[in-house]
Design a protein around this nucleic acid. Structure first.
Length: 621
DNA sequence: TGGGCCCGCGCC
DNA sequence: AAAGGGCGCGGGCCCA
């Protein structure tokens, strides 16, 4: 290709280019501002073209990151920035921040862009200036066309509720049609909604971060988690005995099942059947109404010890046994498929492989390649720190400065022990009303009234069926028809006390969900910003080294350069050549600080990490 | 036979 | 020791 043309400049001069499928085997690149078709190429030629254009550092606009990024990665091409129309559309459709703007944009020619002045005229609350960020923000390469100073840290979304009493749409926008024109139209519509929202910087930051997450998810799958099948087999054989032939149970489980049956005098009981087991336990005179291990543990009977051991092994076998190994691990890599923002709160999910539930037992199989290391880092007490930042609770932030948050609560005299501090904090975030945790919450409320007021407000909104919103503008779903019907029935004059009790219980349950949503969802935003910042820093650590070496197990994109291989809510693992490990650990910490500044400006809340350089994940605890 | 439900339990 | 929020997954079981 002789001369490469690019799309027009967007925010802060960053070029945007729409990529759309254009008939079978073809792809078209479009300037979203003019609608001009820049290039139409065969899909096989697309990675090379994208690689060339990537020098302009554009933001690639496409329907779904999963549609394009895996092919680019397979061809050895990574892109820096994207706008995922599918993810962005879902967020914009639900966000209370954009509720007014959605209605305003609808029905108008989508290419008519609006500015903040018009949004103000629509009655949408203006951005409230956030903390002073001057001088503290580094070049945030992923976000520099999106985050406009200040408004990402606008007053907490719960502080004002401009949408109170307004009906809200709860359907999620359908996927954009595949045609190039439809994609461009949808992109323009989204831009118009963002511009009219009154808080465009906040939403742009959220969408940029989510789109970066979508790229990262594809890269995680492409890189794979370094996994020693031999080490995994050693774990299985140590626990279960040798692998059974066919569908038989491992020898160790058969022995234990024999002990249980003998102790219960029930030679035919099926230990894998919850119903059968419960019946048998009761027939043996045990007062129990569940076969959960917590319920069983309370019982005093010779069958219990072998039964608990049997259940532990059965779990290992079915969740992460030999069949799992056969299905998910190949060529020294475990390749789960992540679903970014797959949960309501924005936390990630997985589809297949159970990557978010890797039990501690098998983590010793997660080992670095020879000559490589794992940098394992998790954010210490992320949720309470995020809550302190959300609520601008300076006392709570101070408790965690330079130390463990829970230790800080003890030092401040709020509670007597670290365990009590943990239960109190988790109880406040999850909505505990009873038990040890519920008993401790009032002490937390006295010490940190701002933080407590924030989660209480979120719970109260949820109990009334309202949406609540995270720091960057992701709103919770509204409860379903069954829930609304329950509430409606309870408010009828002839409602029974049972109706009222049921409605009250459902309302409280939804309130616990929304209470947790604002904290969990904002923490998820911190985490994806952390990862996006880290991804940018890692790219510079490997820069200048030969990027294409004989393809290793990780593929040419990741050969010889540090790269993310695992993400778990508040924890990341980077696989890195040993000589870069300390540089990577520094980058991980710097990225956490950067995420804190992006979300909370100069508000003095810290995000310390537990970071370790290890050869096996099992050594990181 | 397959879908959908519940249960139990792994992770945060 | 369990409690409060969020998940995914496998097994049993019921039903069409």
């Amino acid at each position: 290709m002789a001369r490469v043309s690019v799309g027009g400049p967007g925010e802060n001069g960053v070029v945007r280019i729409v990529i759309a499928g254009d008939g079978p085997g073809w792809a078209t690149l479009i300037d979203p501002d003019t609608g001009a078709r820049l290039h139409t190429v065969r899909r096989a030629e697309l990675p090379a073209l994208v690689s060339k254009l990537e020098g302009q550092r554009p933001r690639w606009v496409w329907h779904d990151t999963r549609e394009w990024a895996p092919g680019f990665l397979a061809a050895g091409v990574r892109v820096e920035r994207a706008h995922d129309l599918r993810l962005a559309g879902a967020i914009l459709e639900a966000s209370d921040v954009a509720a007014e703007a959605r209605r305003a944009v609808e029905g108008r020619p989508p290419w008519l862009r609006r500015g903040p002045a018009e949004a103000a005229a629509l009655g949408v609350a203006d951005d409230v200036p956030g903390p002073d960020r001057s001088g503290s923000v580094p070049a945030a390469t992923l976000f520099d066309d999106w985050a406009t100073a200040g408004d990402a840290t606008a007053a907490h979304p719960l502080a004002a509720d401009p949408m109170a009493g307004h009906p809200v749409a709860d359907e999620v926008v359908g996927s954009a049609a595949e045609s190039p024109d439809a994609l461009v139209a949808e992109y323009r519509r989204q831009c118009a909604v963002i511009d009219a929202s009154g808080q465009p910087g906040r939403l742009r930051l959220l969408l940029a971060a989510e789109s970066a997450g979508a790229l990262i998810a594809c890269e995680l799958t492409a890189a794979g988690v370094p996994w020693s099948a031999d080490e995994h087999r050693r774990v299985l054989e140590g626990e279960l005995g040798s692998r059974p032939f066919g569908f038989g149970k491992p020898a160790r489980m058969l022995e234990l099942a024999g002990e249980v049956r003998a102790a219960l005098e029930a030679p035919r009981v099926n230990l894998d059947s919850q119903a059968d087991l419960l019946r048998t336990l009761r027939a043996a005179g045990l007062a129990v109404d569940s076969t959960s291990k917590w319920a069983l543990r309370r019982l005093d009977h010779p069958a219990i010890r072998p039964l608990l051991e049997y259940k532990r092994l059965a779990r290992l076998l079915s969740a992460n046994g030999w069949a799992w190994l056969d299905e998910w691990v190949a060529d020294g890599r475990f390749r789960p498929e992540y679903v970014p923002a797959g949960t309501a709160s924005g936390r990630w999910a997985t589809s297949g492989g159970g990557a978010l539930q890797l039990p501690k037992q098998v983590r010793r199989a997660l080992v670095a390649d020879p000559g490589w290391r794992l940098v394992v880092a998790d954010a210490a007490q992320l949720e309470p720190r995020v809550l302190a930042g959300l609520a601008h609770d300076t006392a709570m932030a101070a408790a965690g400065r330079g130390r463990d948050v829970y230790a800080g609560l003890v030092d401040a005299g709020v509670v007597g022990s670290r365990d009590e501090a943990k239960y109190a904090v988790l109880g406040a975030i999850y909505g505990a009303t009873s038990g040890e945790s519920g008993r401790l919450v009032p002490r937390l409320a006295r010490a940190y009234p701002r933080a407590m007021a924030l989660v209480d407000r979120a719970a109260a909104d949820g109990e009334r069926g309202r949406r609540v919103t995270t720091l960057l503008g992701r709103s919770s779903p509204v409860p379903g028809a069954d829930w609304r019907a329950l509430q409606a029935r309870a408010s009828q004059p002839d409602a029974s006390s049972a109706d009222e009790r049921r409605a009250r219980s459902a309302a409280r349950e939804w309130g616990r969900f929304t209470r947790n949503f604002v904290v969990q969802g904002s923490a998820a935003e911190w985490a994806v910003c952390w990862m996006a910042a880290l991804r940018g820093r890692l790219a510079t650590i490997g820069a200048g080294r030969p990027a294409t070496t004989p393809a290793g197990a990780s593929g040419p994109v990741f050969a010889r350069v540090p790269h993310l291989v695992y993400f778990l809510h508040d924890e990341v693992i980077v696989h890195t050549p040993a000589e870069h490990a300390h540089t990577v650990a520094d980058a991980v910490r710097a990225s956490a600080a950067e995420a804190g500044r992006i979300l909370f400006g100069t508000f003095p809340v810290e995000f310390p990490l537990d970071a370790r350089i290890v050869e096996s994940y099992a050594d990181a605890d």
